[in-house]
Design a protein around this nucleic acid. Structure first.
Lengths: 411, 411
DNA sequence: ACCTGACGGTCAAAGGTCCA
DNA sequence: ATGGACCTTTGACCGTCAGG
């Protein structure tokens, strides 16, 4: 048996793996979930299209897709021992040794009691006075927050009813959807009302992304304290990149040659029979190719995690070289970017050994220029499409991608 | 976890607690009330004075005060999880639709077929290649070579007579000037013959840079072994960035608001008296501003060294995301890039302590996207200038910046 | 005998359901 | 429409077992 390097991630959901289970490095949750599903011969129905994302934050959202992924990554049904001896006694009934002391009922009489373990996230009372084993992987609060936002994004994006903003001004004025802790409006996963017309699906999903992007941005205190024009500058600077990263990252994992939206609508590099009907979008085909080759594929190859993606989005968003930033804002933005960079590096360094850490760090950071390039391409295509008015672009997407402000609003 | 002593009361309403919920011993009612209030982001108004009593008997009387008390006694919002999958009806009442929700037998979804495919990236047991202790301060041969090239570049650039190549094909066919050990023709620092006409100075210097850039590229064995089309792809991809970095880095140190060539010819952000005479170049003014703000200034601020610049040029040149690279070349290019990255990181780590190392590493790598952006801008301006034929661009610069091949030459 | 990795079982605490 | 009794699911933790 090999020892699993500490910090290995669960292949199913990217939580920390507790070991190999059913032949796959996995976390306790996925291990137990898999066993129960198989033992009880459960079958689940996906309310979406069988391509829900599965990661630590949303792994409970769709059992069908979670089980499917367990199998896809190779969890071995045969490793489940159906006919194991009944264990019988457990801690309560146990008689480990005849010593019979026990007090089975309540152990808390003495030093055995442990301080009630605080739920994750809550502030802690007393640090266990004792020897205090390794504070393993002290979770970085900043990255945790970013990851949490990313998971909420996933839920909101694919399962919530969203009224896209009509303009950047509106978007900045409204409260962020991320601040209400969870606001899933009980819609079924992909009962999200959406256009049936294939030609309108992309604008539909893209305007959702941009809308959520702005809501995401508004959760950062640093962002909120920026002057109005600087807010707009940051939004404009990163919108297209955010969009592209989001679409690439959220394309279901087994898809490697298409960009796919949550409802199964997709773009592939080569015009499909579908797109032959909608010539109007064919202008985007080369951009899709670039997204696949230079964004989606590298993400897959690197096995970018949710946390890494979350950090990268923030690093790119807080870009001190954003055009038009005033110099005070530039310093603030730069400081925020640096904070995320430091957190990311630390996070990597607890999961990898030193040389691997630096390598992965560089690999992630070097995605930035390429993503920006593809984003610029995307904007260009939009401009061309816009010029010829080949199809109606959602006003918000238009503003952010084309850099054209439609409305003016002095805050 | 402790067992709650039987008879414990709900801290909110003094009903019997059913356990700890959201870190507080509480009853079922308060537990559910709290979750729903948070999840739906409810806010309630108190009809009284915000001090209504809350206990078993009257707990429903004022939701505002009930929620307030929940928070006061420490119920933990963070313990609320993301949306879960629907469970299905437990009692057979009300069936929304006879959908095949739970049916055993076979799953509805597609890809559930179960070839237990081995996990794609088992990511295990790769023996960490040699621990390889840091040969402290051992000069890195790769970086040394790069630095050496950079120094030679400086000499050649400012003090040598250079016949610019007429086309990329010619450039690739010729031997590299860097390979002749020393070929400085001992001209005085700026005795280099150059146009007196101010309007022709920039093209003059730029064509020198591009010429030397290609000679620089040809010194890399990896580059030489690339197929012809891939060589061109790399050159085209990086030419403009190389040019910009070169001009910014080589502007004398005391100059911080201009881009200056070795003969003193310069561009500043604001049209100077000089440039008033040469309207034809004014199209480049905004690009110059960007070069100053986003390339020159950051270089100064970081105090980028020659070695760091040299490494950065190589890292950017060996860009695996260069468009049009064939996949074998891509691997080779990527490997070379990685080598430089590793060397650079090592170099930094002997000069700085660990956290500073990572910080500087990131600062350097994050110059890449910005430089690329300015380079793209530069190319755009050239295209516009070219379109209006405002001035004659040197054919080589034209080819590399505009992506227009003038000649064809099958090697 | 003593680790250790990977099984199965347990139960506090989370979420979902549905009647009054 | 909403509260809350009652149910299911989750996953951290622990005992057990086989192989070293």
């Amino acid at each position: 048996m090999e020892k699993l390097p500490p910090g290995t991630l669960c292949v199913v959901c990217e939580d920390e793996a507790t070991g190999k289970h059913y032949s796959i490095p996995s976390c306790n949750g996925c291990k137990t979930f898999f066993r129960r599903a198989i033992v009880n011969n459960r079958t689940f129905a996906c309310m979406g299209h069988g391509n829900c994302p599965v990661n630590k934050g949303v792994r409970c959202a769709c059992r069908h897709c979670r089980l499917k992924k367990c199998l896809e990554v190779g969890m071995d049904k045969n490793a489940i021992q159906n006919d194991r001896d009944r264990i019988g006694y457990t801690k309560r009934t146990k008689r480990p040794r005849p010593s019979s002391d026990e007090m089975a009922g309540h152990t808390n009489g003495e030093g055995f009691s442990d301080p009630p373990q605080p739920s994750p996230g809550s502030s802690v009372g007393s640090p266990p006075s004792g020897p205090m084993l390794v504070p393993l992987a002290a979770p970085d609060p900043l990255l945790e927050r970013l990851t949490d936002l990313e998971n909420k994004f996933t839920l909101l994006f694919s399962r919530s009813i969203i009224e896209p903003y009509a303009s950047i001004d509106d978007a900045l004025a409204a409260p962020s959807r991320f601040c209400r802790p969870i606001d899933i409006q009980m819609s079924d996963p992909v009962a999200v009302p959406r256009p049936c017309d294939d030609q309108r699906k992309m604008p539909f999903w893209r305007s959702r992304i941009i809308t959520l992007f702005i809501d995401w941005a508004k959760t950062f205190p640093i962002f909120q304290n920026l002057p109005y024009t600087d807010k707009i500058a940051l939004i404009m600077n990163h919108a297209s990149s955010y969009l592209i990263m989001c679409e690439a990252f959220r394309t279901p994992e087994h898809i490697t040659d298409k960009i796919m939206h949550p409802d199964g609508h997709f773009f592939s590099r080569n015009p499909t029979p579908d797109s032959l009907f909608s010539k109007s979008l064919s202008g985007l085909t080369p951009v899709m190719g670039a997204m696949i080759d230079y964004v989606l594929r590298p993400f897959r190859q690197l096995k970018v995690t949710v946390t890494e993606l979350a950090a990268l989005q923030a690093i790119m968003f807080f870009d001190p070289d954003t055009e038009g930033l005033d110099s005070a804002s530039q310093r603030n933005v730069s400081a925020e970017q640096k904070r995320v960079l430091v957190s990311l590096y630390r996070q990597l360094s607890i999961r990898y050994d030193p040389s691997e850490t630096a390598e992965r760090y560089a690999s992630l950071l070097l995605r930035v220029p390429t993503i920006r390039k593809v984003a610029a391409k995307n904007n260009e295509s939009y401009q061309i499409l816009d010029m010829f008015k080949l199809f109606t672009i959602n006003p918000l997407v238009r503003e952010t991608a084309l850099g054209v402000r439609l409305t003016r609003h002095i805050p």
